[in-house]
């Protein structure tokens, strides 16, 4: 079952965050992908790159590690894989805390 962002938001019971702003150790699941403010590549391209790495609605995520300078980049466990990305790009990933 893939949780839809709209339903969750309508119900008002789930808080949606951007993954790039979550602290280390946070875990939850992906509720959607949304464009960030200053894109450096077209949104459709960034969206597909994230999807191809398994960052898709419903995927479990856990923010495992942070880089040594400025807590950036972050290493995120996405289901069974670990993906490294910068916080600014991770802001495109909408997440909600695990129940």
């Amino acid at each position: 079952m893939i949780p839809a962002v709209e339903h969750a938001a309508l119900a008002g019971s789930i808080e949606i965050h951007r993954l790039g702003r979550r602290p280390k150790g946070w875990s939850g699941y992906v509720t959607g992908l949304a464009p960030i403010a200053d894109l450096t590549i077209p949104w459709g391209e960034l969206e597909r790159r994230l999807l191809e790495m398994g960052i898709v609605e419903g995927a479990r995520v856990e923010l495992m590690h942070e880089g040594p300078i400025g807590r950036d980049p972050i290493a995120v466990r996405v289901d069974d894989a670990t993906v490294a990305l910068r916080r600014r790009d991770a802001d495109a990933i909408l997440v909600a805390a695990a129940e």
Partner: peptide
């Protein structure tokens, strides 16, 4: 501007 950095560990 920086290119996105997305890499599997």
């Amino acid at each position: 501007e920086p290119e996105p950095f997305i890499m599997e560990l």
